[in-house]
Simulated assay, not measured.
Amino acid sequence: MKLEICCYSIDDVMIAQQNGADRIEFCAGRSDGGLTPSYGDLLQLSQLNLAIPIHPIIRPRGGDFYYSQTEISTMIHDIELVRELNFAGVVFGALTLSATLDIKNLSRLINAAKGLSLTFHRAFDVCKHPLMALQQLQTLGFHRLLTSGQKATATAGIKLIEQLNHYSEHLTIMPGCGVKSSNLQRFIDIGLSEFHSSATKVMPSPMLYQNSEVNMSHTKQNESLCYTIDSDEVKKMKKLMIKD
């Protein structure tokens, strides 16, 4: 079994690795659900030569997953950078206006990612016809699918996740969104072997002065809080996986 931890900083990556994570999904843009990391972060992370596999997400913006040709070109360039920096894999997805898989542009992205491990992200959770999409992802050559079962959380979507795992021939079905030590056993019990978690820990900002009248985020999130990886939560999940 493998535990993938979603990390939004290099410090997060180090905490996750030190506490037993098997793989990292590396992202920027926490409030957008994960965006392509900066060149500076990717370069610095690659220079650390960590033993743990790291899969940067390739997602140029938040919102929907219908991309213009300019955005697809940006994604291709970002994938090429990830390859040049010797990362193990990439995470991406793209849909058509009718919320089906964008086969043409996905094929272009896959071609750019030749030799890398391929994960299709939660764009799957807002696409039509999930079982048809599953077969298409297998034909395209993806290695794994990150999904909440088209629900707000993976526990709510566990029935579809189990169904996807039943019909998958060689695509690894990896539950994500709300997966933690308190519910991990449910996913182990339906025969899954890879799990995705943010293992988030919230802490107060270390800033000595904060202006409560100003907020920089369009989501109006509480900017007096910081988010990091809960090392104890990672350890608990790994213990459950080893015990099973």
Rank of each mutant, 00 (worst) to 15 (best):
L208F: 14
K239A: 03
S148V: 01
G176S: 04
F187A: 00
I76Q: 13
N222E: 14
D125P: 11
S148N: 11
F87A: 01
M207E: 14
A112R: 14
L48I: 02
C6K: 08
D244S: 09
M14F: 01
R61M: 08
T96G: 04
R122G: 13
L116F: 11
I229H: 07
A88M: 05
R23I: 05
D41H: 15
P204Y: 12
L192S: 10
N105D: 13
I242T: 03
G115H: 07
M75N: 02
V82L: 04
L164M: 00
P56D: 00
L184Y: 13
Q17R: 11
M1D: 12
L146E: 00
K159P: 02
I173N: 05
L43Y: 11
H196N: 06
L145H: 14
R122W: 15
I5G: 06
S31R: 09
S68N: 12
M174S: 00
S198N: 09
V13M: 07
H166Y: 09
D11A: 06
D230F: 08
S98Y: 14
L42H: 04
L184C: 01
E194P: 04
K238Q: 04
S98G: 04
G176F: 07
E71R: 13
G40E: 12
T70D: 12
H121E: 11
N165F: 08
F26I: 03
C177G: 00
S205K: 13
D22A: 07
G40T: 07
M75G: 04
T139K: 15
C226Q: 15
L116Q: 11
M1C: 06
P130K: 11
V13E: 11
P206H: 15
F92M: 08
R83C: 04
A123W: 15
I52S: 00
S193F: 10
V82Y: 00
M237E: 01
H218P: 15
R30C: 03
D12P: 01
P37Q: 10
G157F: 15
M174C: 02
Q221P: 07
S117W: 10
I24Q: 03
I58F: 05
P60K: 01
G89M: 14
I79Q: 07
H77N: 04
C226L: 08
S224K: 07
L134Q: 11
L85R: 15
E162Q: 15
Q44M: 13
V90C: 04
L101D: 09
L50Q: 10
Y167E: 12
K201V: 01
D230H: 11
A199T: 12
C27N: 15
G20L: 13
